[in-house]
Design a protein around this nucleic acid. Sequence first.
DNA 1: CTGAAAGCGCTAACAT
DNA 2: ATGTTAGCGCTTTCAG
Lengths: 360, 360
Amino acid sequence: MPCDAATVTTKKATIKDVAREAKVSVASVSRALNGQGGVTAETLDRIRVAAKRLRYIPDNAARSLITRRTHTIGALLPDLYGEFFSELIRGIDLAARARGLQLLVSSSHDGVEDAANAMRAMQGRVDGMLILSPWVDADFLQANLPEDVPTVLMNSPLDADGWSVLNIDNRGGAYAMVQHLLTTAGHADVALISGPGSNYDSQQRELGYREAMATFASRVPLNIVQGNFTEQSGYEAGRAILAQSPRPRAVFAANDMMALGCLYAFKEAGLRVPQDIALAGFDDIPIARYLSPSLSTVSVHIAELGRSALERLAALLDGHAQSTTSDTLGCAVVIRETCGSSRDDASPKNPYQPKSPTDV
Amino acid sequence: MPCDAATVTTKKATIKDVAREAKVSVASVSRALNGQGGVTAETLDRIRVAAKRLRYIPDNAARSLITRRTHTIGALLPDLYGEFFSELIRGIDLAARARGLQLLVSSSHDGVEDAANAMRAMQGRVDGMLILSPWVDADFLQANLPEDVPTVLMNSPLDADGWSVLNIDNRGGAYAMVQHLLTTAGHADVALISGPGSNYDSQQRELGYREAMATFASRVPLNIVQGNFTEQSGYEAGRAILAQSPRPRAVFAANDMMALGCLYAFKEAGLRVPQDIALAGFDDIPIARYLSPSLSTVSVHIAELGRSALERLAALLDGHAQSTTSDTLGCAVVIRETCGSSRDDASPKNPYQPKSPTDV
DNA sequence: CTGAAAGCGCTAACAT
DNA sequence: ATGTTAGCGCTTTCAG
């Protein structure tokens, strides 16, 4: 360790050291370094020099103790995978940095107990919390959320008063996709491969399917095959659909992984997609555009979810209490090859837009 | 907010409140709740009850101020994408939780200045740091790392004494893959699509290629086409390789994204992979197994990197100073279809192993 | 076994 | 404009 400065000892410099070095009181040092004015330009300068010389950095714990502010927000997340997780964090982190906030992350929770512990551990370390967790409901929050810690819930079914929640428009996205399949693409009927019944996203997507069907194909009977969001279940659902007697013209899978499995099933059976049967998914996972045929799907702007949630929380922190409402973030329908939209076959498909490298 | 407890006021309970409630001194409360003994079972019980009734949770700031421990470790990460980022955090987070440590994350740094700021902001908030950043070198650390903050560097070229660094065996992985291509798969020569010269991973992978070539194909001239880790550059490199007069039998791309682009180029030219030309990548991104033909590649155990790094840091925190050495984590060669290993075409390729859902 | 008291490093009144 | 002082909530000697 380099020790070129004159008065540097092995211990970390405190505000007292700086005060002594600059020949002023600790109060002046505090004022000067916090830029609250009330100091001569001259003394300010002397203090700055002293601080630099001593490599003084204020102790956050001490500061927090008295200001009651940590400038840290906590993010409570479940066991998330790939793109979703990284995009979410990126959105949150970027917005947080822009506001000078730190990010305390606790992910990979595997149960209610686990989540509760993580939550408790954040007590006193954060000014507010961002929560995205299947384990968290109203009761849980009542029981575990430390008093008056501003909190924003993401993608939560919670609709009670007083909670600030930010949702993804799963219903609207599903609706729009099914509408597209039914109208623009002109398929007579659409089957749904649903996700697990217990999953909120799954429920909402199914709702969107039902509504779109009711609106645009009211006399066509609903055709729902149960899946569970896994590729395997999509494969099985695909085979089940193949076995149906009047085979549906189009299939909407409640997520891309199931669409993937379903696509294999169709290919395996020798069907051409989309000519013989159309297909669409939900999520727009990176693989979607690389499949052949490339998968039409619904894209969720995850980073945006993170960013918005943080902005919301920041507003709460600043006392803008009107933010305790429920709000929803839109999705975008991404039309690629599998849904068989007859129109757009113009561009010679150049998949080589420059992308950011995956590597470090 | 529910307020069923008797003595609960609106303010947060402090240790004093608990002491009063239990009719003991604050010292006893501290001892009791920290399980250091020195308290009668009876008083301990009384204190516990009082604490529960008051919903008392110790203030971490105050505790840190005196114990000089935050039980938090900071993770400084660059702008990372997808799988890599999420796996890394998962590995770190899981290991941290297991040790009762919190995780302060700061990612998405876009330059040296940015990284330095983030680092300074962690001062006093963390007991140690995990750093993975292209901006961080010895000088940077000298200048910005707060004194005596134990630190573990990940994937860093730094080899100086006194730093604890954990690397991915990029060189070994590349070596093994090229060896496989040359020997097991029996290809006479292998071309390399290299990554950006400034990138450490890239350099190491190229080194592995060179060494394997020197060992297993010493009289074959090196054939290196420059890329930059993007899909686009892989595509262009692929075309460049196609234009070579005696076309190489196999191509090793320094990452999967480039392999992807290269594969398109080959397909576009009507070549069959691996019959006409073999191909392999590096990283094992999720897409790799879904390509057709599926991509042979080198798999990096990223979560393991995170876990190991944290374990290392924890050891440092516990005073096991022997951990200030350099260590390396192995990679695994994953043989799929593109590299044309003539042997293993036995299994009827069932891609439907159950996988965890991508969704929330 | 328990309590009184001294700070940890900092900020924020309150003096001067 | 600057200094003095009283804590923030907690742990930890040191007495009893």
